[in-house]
Structure formats: structure tokens, C-alpha cells
Design a protein around this nucleic acid. Structure first.
Lengths: 347, 347
DNA sequence: CTGTTAGCGCATTCAC
DNA sequence: GTGAATGCGCTAACAG
């Protein structure tokens, strides 16, 4: 592999001149510039990124870490879309992405610190966001440049998040408008910010509508279809009535659909079902699922923009930016009641 | 940040001694070893991976590239599972993963070559595998260490693949056993090896059963639910009869389910439907979908093992290894016919 | 067992 | 404008 010296020799200049040409320095004669360029082509020269990183103390690499838990939390397609968004802007700005998937929060934290201390990356994007997040605390303490996808409960940090409260609020309002009054809420683990926020939007909408919040209608479970199904079964068994389900994840909505089938309840007439994430594969359920569409790709892209901006203009870290992306309710048949708006039911 | 020199000074030894302690060299006295260790802790020393990479000409980083097309091809959860598998063994063997998602094959090829030429990675895992694959050709030409997830049509390369021919063969046999005789096949783009292989298994099973292959029952389309739906509609319109669908991707199976609903065909009685990938979210369709389960996690893990093995024992590249992982047919209601095996139909 | 020397490939002073 | 010298932080001979 050719080095800068080889090029210098061929172009009959010094290595530093070659270096300048690479860097695009201006005070260099057109003639030698040409000669160096030709020499580079001749030996098929490509700068060694490692050597450059060492000399400049910057790697042009950012780390993206994820703990398995978070991966499940946001259902799968979400994850790969975020990655695509990140990758796309990284590519454009000539950065690389170092990926690390951990089993739990503790492992993720160590991985993050290690990547930074070993100087493998210039900054990090983390997608965790718990209510009490030790990872974020650690990153702040070590003054590491990072952006979180999600949001931090206490400390102000650079973050990109979707407006969960607002989305959940609107979703609930939609259900109310369709005439549902006894809306059950299936929550993921409450330690996750996303769960807290979505629950809040739900409560807020009920409050505004003057409908009391029944704790019995709120269930918490792990992210899974089964969890959603069981939660509803439990409610039913304990005699809690509900005519709609706000599922804070599409997986729960799947469970709700199964519940409806199991108990022969008509969706949407007897049970309205609304999910979160608008997983592409799930717009084809029977009936098609109403769901909150999240801008996953944009989430990743914005996070990367934010991080790179901060890395290249360190003073930007001063004005902590928290970006919030809108989401949109995709209304489909699982909540489109015929009985409510107009009394004609055609079955 | 502390360097090896700082540690050396504190432990009153030379930098090379510190380096030896890090490397775990044996011929070094227990006493100085201790002293060095203490010094390292004292200043919280962590070796600079970049400097080490430069000195050793090895980065302990492998690149994983993917073009958007391939990402779609294998439906999404597949992708993140593969990544998890790769990440898990990388972590264990202290390697890092550099991720790059491209828009198309050409871009992916350039990205691969660049990563290698810039010396950012020691080797690559690529998940493309077309019938005529220019990426693989390029990697071979440049003598780059790499492993393919999938397989190469012509050149022998290190690869990890699932046994698509066999899986498709078994799936078809299952349909035949259930009494289906007019089995339609929905294929993805034929330029992909996976499509070719699955089609072959299908044909082979029909052949063994003495059933002629009707080209009219074979459709090719892009990976999407809509594609699957339209393919069947087209068949129906052109008067081709079929009593089962072998969908070479779960997305197609979704389309087939919609087709059945649309034309009020009972599944599995009037139409058997069998998918590929066993996407977790889709075991909850109505009726539950029979599908070929792919070991995605293992695919990623094995690919990484293979690559790292090759990187650390270069002579291993001699005996080109092609690993083939088995898959398993998950039989559910969408193909479990009651009418076929015993004539009692209970509806 | 341990220290000295010499790079790894490039960027960046400081001279001229 | 360009070259020479020095260093980024670590590893790897070569001595002793």
C-alpha cells in the first residue's frame, strides 16, 4: 500500500507538501498540486485513516450503542430505520459508525466509556432513555460528546425525540371522538421515558374530556404480543370494562387483536384498537390497525446531524438542543367505528 | 488522558515494559508487573486503540456493509438479528463493528473498498449475494478478507448461508402432504441467490412428486405485501388455478392472506399459505402463518466467527469454508388442512 | 528480565 | 510556496 512518502518521491516534493495537497491547503502552487495529484493516482494512493486519526486526535467515527432491552422496546423495524437515518448523514459528512449492541444497561455503559477512552470514537449516540438513567449520568460526568435518541428526565442533554406525550394525547382524543369512553392503556415498563410520556398523554386527554382515569384500566407489561394479550385478559377477569385499547406499542395491539378474536368481539365496533409505531407489516392486520407513525429514519438522521454539529463546533454544546419530531396518527379500520358517528351498521 | 509514558514514569520503568505488561508478556518479573499495574490504575490508564492500530497495522475492527436493497430483501427483523449475532461474538473476542448502509450495490462496493484502503477495518462481512455479484468479484480481486452472508454463485468464498434449497424443498413437500396439488410460488427478484435457491427447492419437490411445474404459477415481484397480493390477483385473472401459495418471504404471505380475504377463500381449506423467515410479529396472523424459520442470529454469529478465525489464522483462508445453517418449518394453521388428512370438516 | 532505538503514516509547527 | 523536524501513542526488534 502506498504511503505519503511514495507519493512525495514520485512527485519530487516533500511529504508535507503532499499532506497539504490532501488537506486542500491554498498556499500551494497549481503546478505542484497537479504533479502531486498525478502521483497519487499513479500509485493509487489512499490516506491511511488510522495514521491520520492519530496525528489529528480525531477519528471521524461515532459510536452507536444500544442495549438489547431498548432494541426490544422500540420494535425491530424502528431500530433499522434509525440506523439508516444515521448512516445516511454520516455517509454524507464522511463519518463512520461504530456499532455496539449490549445485553443490558451496565454493559452498554462500559462499552461507551471504553470506546471513548480508547479513543476509537469522537462521540456517541445512545438510544437508551430511562427515567433514572445511569448511562446518561456517566456520559455527562466524563464530559463525553453525545446525543440521546429519546430524552433525559433530569439533566439537559442534546437529544432527539418524538413527541410521545402529544402523540398519545392525540391518539386518545381520536378514540374519544369515535365514541369510545372506557379506554384501556397498555404500557411498557414504566422505567422507560417513552412509557411515562405516552401514559401522560393518555391521562391528559381523559382529563380534558372530563373522564376519570381508572387505574384498573392501565396495565404495565413487557414489550410483547403475549404481554398485551394477557394484560387485557387480566383486566377482563377482574371485571374491568373497556371498549377501546390504547396500545403503547404495536406488539400490544397485536395482542389486543388476538384478545378480540378470542372473545369474539368485533373490532372496531365493540373494541377499538390503536397502536404505536405503525410497523409496516402491521398495516395489513384484520382489520387494518390504526397506529401512531414515528419518524424513525428522521430520528436517526437528526441525531447524527446534532452530534456532528457539536463535534465540529464545540461551542454548540453550550446551547443544549432538544429536538422533538412530530408523529402522525394513521387512522385505519381498527378504530373507525360505524356505530358511533352514524347509526347505520352494515354487516 | 494518560499515555504509556506517564505510566512508565510513575512505575519507574521504560515504556516498552509497560507495553509488555499490557500485552501480557510472560518474561517479566512479578514485581514490576505489579508496580506497572498499580501505576496504570493510579492514572486510570487505557491504551489508545488508534495508536495501537497504527503500530500493529491491525484495527480489531470489522466492517459490515449492506445495501438498502438487501435490507429489504430479508425483511427487517432479520437484519437486526444478524447484527445481534455478529455483535455478540465480536464483543466476546474484543472486536468492533463498523457499520455502513448503502443505497445500492455500487455505493456499497465503493464503501467496502474505501474502508479497507483507508485501513479502517481488518476485514468485511457483506450480506449481498446476487447471482452475478460485482461486489464479491471486487473483494476477491483486491484480496480482501471477507465473509459473505448468503452464498456466491461462481467463485468459492467464505460464506454462511441458510439452506434455502432444502428449506424450500421441505416446505413444498409439507404442502403436498397436506393435499395441496396446485402450488403457486411467489419469488423475489431472480437476481438474488436466495430467490434462485428457493425456487429450485420448490421445483425439485414438485418434480419428485411427479407434478409438472407450471410457469404460470410462478410469479416474480419486489419484496412487499402489495407485490404478493398483486401477483396472485394476476394469476387468478389469467385463469391460473392454485390451491396453495409458497411465499418466498413473509411479506408475500401477508399479501396472500389479503388475497384470500378479498376473495373470501378459506385458509387453509381452500388456500394453503406458507411463508419464509418466520417473522415474529407474523405468527399472530389469522390464521397463524406456517413459515420457515431462519436462524438469523446464528447466521451473524457464524459469519463473525468465520471472519475472525480467518483474520487471526490467515492460513485458514486456504480451505474455503462454506457454512450452511439449517432452518425449520414452523407449522401453523395456515397450512394445517382438516379436509385433506381426514374428511371431517368442522365449520 | 528490561531499556534503547526505530518506526507505523500522517499533520503541523517552524524555518527559509 | 515548500522542506525539515518533531510528535501523535504504541509496538517491536535488538541489545544487554
Amino acid at each position: 500500500m502506498a504511503t505519503i512518502k511514495d507519493v512525495a518521491k514520485i512527485a519530487r516534493v516533500s511529504p508535507s507538501t503532499v499532506s497539504r495537497v490532501i488537506a486542500g491547503s491554498d498556499r500551494i502552487s497549481q503546478k505542484t498540486k497537479e504533479r502531486v495529484r498525478k502521483a497519487m493516482e499513479e500509485v493509487n494512493y489512499v490516506p491511511n485513516a488510522i495514521a491520520r486519526s492519530l496525528a489529528r486526535s480525531r477519528t471521524r467515527t461515532v459510536g452507536f450503542t444500544l442495549s438489547r432491552r431498548a432494541d426490544q422496546a422500540f420494535s425491530n423495524p424502528f431500530f433499522s430505520e434509525v440506523l439508516r437515518g444515521m448512516s445516511s448523514v454520516a455517509q454524507m459528512r464522511d463519518y463512520n459508525i461504530l456499532l455496539s449492541i449490549s445485553l443490558n444497561e451496565e454493559e452498554e455503559k462500559e462499552k461507551c466509556l471504553r470506546l471513548i477512552r480508547e479513543r476509537r470514537v469522537d462521540g456517541l449516540i445512545v438510544s437508551t432513555s430511562r427515567v433514572k438513567d445511569s448511562l446518561i449520568d456517566a456520559l455527562l460526568r466524563e464530559e463525553i460528546p453525545f446525543v440521546v435518541i429519546g430524552r433525559s428526565a433530569d439533566s439537559p442533554v442534546m437529544s432527539v425525540n418524538n413527541d410521545n406525550v402529544q402523540a398519545s394525547f392525540q391518539a386518545t382524543k381520536h378514540l374519544l371522538k369515535e365514541g369510545y369512553r372506557e379506554i384501556a392503556f397498555i404500557s411498557g415498563p414504566r422505567e422507560l421515558m417513552v412509557s411515562v410520556d405516552r401514559l401522560q398523554g393518555y391521562k391528559q386527554a381523559l382529563f380534558e374530556a372530563g373522564i376519570p382515569v381508572e387505574e384498573g384500566r392501565i396495565a404495565e407489561t413487557d414489550f410483547s404480543e403475549e404481554g398485551g394479550f394477557q394484560a387485557l385478559c387480566a383486566m377482563r377477569e377482574s371485571g374491568v370494562a373497556f371498549d377501546a385499547v390504547l396500545a403503547s406499542d404495536d406488539l400490544f395491539a397485536l395482542g389486543a387483536l388476538r384478545f378480540a378474536t378470542h372473545y369474539r368481539m368485533d373490532v372496531p365496533e365493540e373494541l377499538g384498537i390503536l397502536g404505536f409505531n405503525d410497523t409496516p407489516m402491521m398495516s395489513h392486520t384484520h382489520p387494518p390497525l390504526t397506529s401512531v407513525r414515528i419518524l424513525s429514519y428522521e430520528l436517526g438522521a437528526e441525531a447524527m446531524e446534532l452530534l456532528l454539529g457539536g463535534l465540529e463546533n464545540p461551542e454548540k454544546w453550550k446551547n443544549q438542543k432538544e429536538i422533538v419530531l412530530p408523529s402522525r396518527l394513521e387512522i385505519r379500520e381498527s378504530t373507525r367505528r360505524k356505530g358511533a358517528e352514524n347509526e347505520k351498521s352494515h354487516n
